[in-house]
Design a protein around this nucleic acid. Sequence first.
DNA 1: TACAATTATTTATCGCACGATTTACACCAA
DNA 2: TTGGTGTAAATCGTGCGATAAATAATTGTA
Lengths: 146, 146
Amino acid sequence: MTDDPLKLDTFICFALYSANHAMNRLYKPMLDALNLTYPQYLVMVTLWEEDGQTVGGIGEKLFLESSTLTPLLKRLEAAGFIHRTRSKEDERQVLIQLTGEGKALKKKAAAVPPCILDATEQTAEELTRLKAEIITLREALSKNAA
Amino acid sequence: MTDDPLKLDTFICFALYSANHAMNRLYKPMLDALNLTYPQYLVMVTLWEEDGQTVGGIGEKLFLESSTLTPLLKRLEAAGFIHRTRSKEDERQVLIQLTGEGKALKKKAAAVPPCILDATEQTAEELTRLKAEIITLREALSKNAA
DNA sequence: TACAATTATTTATCGCACGATTTACACCAA
DNA sequence: TTGGTGTAAATCGTGCGATAAATAATTGTA
């Protein structure tokens, strides 16, 4: 036991980093089957929730910049899951809409969350609480970022 | 309110993903000043804890493959922070050792953790508990990964 | 000696992420 | 109508991380 603050075990950031990693590896085989990467999956989830969002709207929910989203969305378009069309009302905006294939993918994706839940070996209640705490942390970090 | 499991808000994974993201953005300006990326920083932390580890040893601690570490370590070597030398005892292994510059960097890096702690707006006790819970989650996920 | 296991590197591929800049459009005010 | 300001998205450039698969070198063992 030392009080050296530069010790890996003491790092909340490493806990986050490595847990996120583990999550990714767990998702990977399932997402491969859907032909999605993890960030792409998140975009699809937001679209399944609400179709026809703008690039900026999606970015706001996922905390991603347009310079990240634009190429990602083009890949989703190339894969046939979405359409990208300029908004009629405001031609600065681009609307992202699910294709039939994109909508159909939701059914297949429905199998994923139960698998993840299962792998956590925790109850939904425990996870809900943990999730809330992690989000509280995220909000503090965002607020205090330069 | 729906019970649709494919809702972004219900995803523990998204909480992890976005919190990790926020953490990265918080770290970035500080790590830029040290000339390190975040995974490189983690490697340096493990070396500050214990110098002269093997590639595999570092990978085990950080949950990274050698195919990820080798190029990363080469960058650290090019930056002048470490040396890579074949082990005399077992020439399959490569030992990673801090240079003077690499050791010196620890002093500068000491300023980082307090900044992070501060930005979390939580007490050390709260963070310790949260960290433990996240690690428990990580362990369950790793165990159940394909 | 032959075979298996370990360790790290290499190769190829890919996508994410960021910063800075640019383009196009919208809106408001002079 | 023009000009300024702000916003939305795309673009460009750059770099890193991550994985899978194949290779090479070494070590240990049957």
